[in-house]
């Protein structure tokens, strides 16, 4: 378990920076269609914000924001979201991961693939976020 770093400067800077990092991470995830970005990069940035919280506020406070078990569960949820998004077009008559057959009303053709890519990117982001935070939590835990 990491301990809190007793310094007002570090704490205030951390508290100010973390929300901006998280908003930027969401921007990177959702802007992956038009520029550099996507699930992997955005997920890692999001994980970095939580790791910053853990480093600055110490284990007890930071684990309230994102408990280690929840992190691993988020990772599993992301991978599951990806796999199920591939499975749904199969039910609708297409092939595995063929987003052109996603049953979303009001969207068709290339737009459907656009939406499919967005869902998949969000799944990747959750997966990467959960696994990065999970690995960090397990590595730093002091042998008690």
């Amino acid at each position: 378990m990491i301990t809190r770093y007793e310094s007002p400067i570090v704490e205030v800077v951390c508290r100010v920076i973390v929300p901006f990092v998280q908003v930027f991470a969401l921007y990177v995830i959702t802007h992956g269609h038009y520029g550099p970005g996507g699930g992997f990069q955005g997920g890692v940035i999001l994980a970095a914000s939580f790791l910053l919280l853990r480093l600055c506020l110490g284990g007890e406070l930071a684990h309230q924001k994102l408990p280690p078990r929840l992190a691993i569960a988020l990772g599993a949820f992301g991978v599951l979201l990806y796999g199920l998004t591939g499975l749904v077009p199969m039910m609708a008559g297409g092939q595995y991961l063929d987003y052109g057959h996603l049953p979303i009303p009001g969207v068709s053709g290339a737009e459907l693939r656009y939406v499919g890519i967005l869902i998949v990117e969000i799944g990747i982001a959750f997966g990467v976020l959960g696994i990065m935070v999970g690995i960090f939590d397990n590595l730093v835990e002091r042998q008690s």
């Binding site: 996507g38 992997f40 990069q41 890692v44 990467v128 696994i131 990065m132 690995i135 590595l139």
Partner: peptide, 12 residues
């Protein structure tokens, strides 16, 4: 892009 993230996980 995928290989970098995988390398981080395997380093863990």
């Amino acid at each position: 892009l995928t290989a970098i993230v995988v390398s981080v996980a395997t380093t863990g």
